[in-house]
Structures are given as C-alpha cells and as structure tokens.
Simulated scan of single mutants.
Amino acid sequence: MKATNRDVYEKVTKPLVDSAVNGFNATIFAYGQTSSGKTHTMMGSKTERGVLELVVNEIFEAIESNPDREYLLRVSFIEIYQEQITDLLTGSTRLKVSDTHNEVVIKELSEEMCSTPDSVIDVMKKGEKLRHIACTNMNERSSRSHTIFRIIIESRSRCETGSDEIAIQLSHLNLVDLAGSEKVNQTGATGGRFKEGCAINVSLSALGKVIDQLSKNERHVNFRDTKLTHILRNSLGGNAMTAIICAISPASVDETLSTLRFATGAKTIMNKPVVNEVVNDKAMLKRYEKKIKDLELQLVSRFKELNLLYSISSFHFCFLHYSILLIHFFPFFSFFCFFIFLYPYCAFILSLLHSLKVP
C-alpha cells in the first residue's frame, strides 16, 4: 500500500491542528535519516501537497467553521544551522534564546501577519529560499539545517469585543523539519559538507538523548545542550501536543533501526498540554468571583446536610431512649425499632454519595 502525504496528515497531524485552533500548543516533527523523505512529507512537491500546506488549509477551515470567535494569525520561520539561529524571513543571524516565565523566547524574531492560506504559504516559500541546501551522494537537495515554521494563533470570543473583560487564547503550532542523520561513507561529504554533517549528527544525538531521558523519567534532562532541544522544550514532555513522523529508507538498515528506536522511546513520553489563555485583570476577577460564589453554594449545601444529620441524631437519641424501654416490655417491637433507627442514616449516606458522584 502506498501512503500519501494526505494519508499521513489525516492519521497523524489533523487532531493536533484542531487542538491548536482551540488553544493548545502543538508540534509536528519529521525525523529520520537523510534522503528518507522528511522534507517531501513536510513541504511537499509540485505534484503533491505537503503536511504544512494541508495544516494551513485546515486551520482556516476551522476558523471559518467557528463564527463565535475572532482569530489573528502570525507566522515566524527560523533555521538552526551549525547551532546558529537565523530568521528566514529577514535574514537576521545569531539570534539569542532566553527563558521567560517558563517560556522559551527567541529574541528579535520577526513575525508576519497572515489572513489567508496563500499568504501563509507565500511566507513559507520566502523562507525556504534562504535555507541551507546542498547536494550529496545520498540526496540532490539535502537539508543542511533544521527549520521550525511556527504559526501563532490568537482568538477571543466575539461577545468580548469592546469589553474590558478579555480572555485571549494563544497557541503555538510548530512544524519542524529536521535535517537527516548521515554517515560520511554514504554521503561522500568533505570540507564544509562534512562540517555540516557533524553538526547535524551532534544536534540529532542530543535530541535522542533528551527523548531517552524523558522516556526513563530522569530528574535532569539536558534541554540546553543544543538550540533545537532548548527551543522545543515545551514540545518534549511539556505543555504541548506532539506528533513525530518518522521517515525510514532501505538505504541503511542501521539508520532505520536507530529511527525506530527513537520512535519507540518517544511514544512513552507523556506531555502535559493545557489551554493557553492570556486574561486581563478584570476578566480574572470576574472568574474568581464566580468561583467564590460556586464555593459558597457548595458550603451552604454541605451545612444543610450537616444540620439535617444533627436533627436526625437528636431525634434518634430520644427515639433510642424510648425504644429501649419499649423493647424491654414488648420484645416483638425490636425489628421495627431497628429499621426506624437505621433508615434515615442509610438514606442520608446514599444521597451524599449521589451528590459527590463525578459527572
């Protein structure tokens, strides 16, 4: 059976796109050895659309099907070449990475606003022209760098437009095209190509190490060893939904086994995605007020139940006192008294369990 990029998209990436539109961070990787088809899968060709283009079309279809929210899309495109970060939209090089409030930020990274699928694709093609690509024995157009095409999706409810109480959902959708691992005896790389191949292998080795550490639940994970793992920290066991497309090739059995081991380890990692919201002070206060009111109602309900229990207990103290006298003189009343004594408690416990049942 021959699988197409559309098949890969439908089975692997479409659910992540739907989640990203609804406020969850998401990341889609393409991983594998050189010449295995990663770039073709992500970027497509003249005869077949890639995952990136299918993702973009799906985003705008989802936006059109949700008229209750208004959306704003921004895109950025970076290249990691020999551990140097380049903005593919402006050509700026040696960008710095920093951690701010548990978020990894690339300083001075440009973003472009997009309002149509075509405008997003145009930005992607513009960046692709600046990417490092070279010819090797394994691949006529071998990617010599990693790229991350990021789509930033902001949305808010239309009923909040013009209101002081604003809650904005803000999610990042990362589309990552990794350079392929390669062996010198296969690629025939020399000089600059050889240096590029070494940098690629070191970076991918660090990514594999991070995946291995996360799969083993180690306390310390070496995210900062490379720019790639640092930037994608949230995508690896953090606040994001992540899908990894592993491409293999019959050109090297060893590389294929290595890719499959990588995929096996990655499948065991548990991410912790949450809806990302930016809420202003008034909206936050309104939410807290609602939460306080809900808690007050729960407390009133519990107090009523406790008062009922106290009333039942008082009644049963008197009932028990007179029942003992009654049973002493009329033993055949014992079963009737026992039933009257226990029934309210059983009914109270059953109602309490019903109220605590998780919907």
Results as ranks from 00 to 15, higher is better:
V279F: 00
F315S: 08
D7H: 12
G23M: 07
F335N: 11
I292A: 10
E79Q: 08
N139S: 15
K291N: 10
K282Q: 12
F336N: 15
F60H: 13
T136W: 06
V12F: 09
S143H: 06
I78G: 05
M1T: 11
E53W: 00
S351G: 01
A134S: 14
I78V: 15
T136Y: 09
F338D: 13
N271Q: 02
I151L: 11
L170W: 00
L295A: 09
T34Q: 06
R302M: 06
K357Y: 06
D254R: 07
S249Q: 07
C346F: 08
A62D: 12
I78D: 03
E70A: 04
D87C: 05
S252P: 10
A167E: 12
F335A: 12
D68H: 06
P331T: 11
G23C: 09
S171G: 09
L232R: 06
E196T: 07
T86C: 14
L54R: 14
T259K: 05
F77I: 08
F341G: 04
R224N: 14
V253C: 12
E79G: 03
T100C: 12
S171E: 10
S19L: 14
S301L: 06
F333W: 11
C114D: 11
L352V: 07
Y343D: 11
L214H: 04
K2C: 07
I211Y: 08
I349K: 02
K291Q: 12
K291R: 11
S203K: 00
E160R: 02
K195W: 00
V221Y: 03
I152V: 13
V8I: 13
S142E: 10
N102K: 04
V55H: 01
E182F: 03
D225I: 01
V51Y: 06
N280V: 08
E182I: 08
N234I: 04
S252N: 15
R150G: 04
F341A: 02
T259F: 08
R141A: 12
A20D: 09
F24G: 04
G44T: 03
Y322N: 04
F77C: 06
I327N: 11
G238T: 02
Q213D: 09
N239V: 04
P15K: 04
A283K: 09
Y345E: 06
S215N: 07
R69C: 13
Y9Q: 10
V105E: 15
H220F: 11
M270Y: 00
R6D: 15
E64T: 01
L52T: 15
L353G: 06
Y9F: 15
C198M: 06
L352C: 05
H172A: 03
A240G: 02
M1H: 10
L95T: 03
Q186I: 05
V275Y: 01
S311Y: 02
L325N: 08
G197M: 01
D177Y: 07
V279W: 00
S92Y: 01
D7G: 11
S355D: 05
P15H: 02
E277D: 00
G238H: 02
P344E: 07
P117E: 11
V221H: 01
T100I: 14
I324W: 13
T13Y: 03
R287F: 05
A240R: 03
C114S: 10
S249M: 09
L73S: 14
Y343E: 14
N276G: 09
P250V: 00
P359F: 10
E108D: 15
N57P: 01
F29E: 13
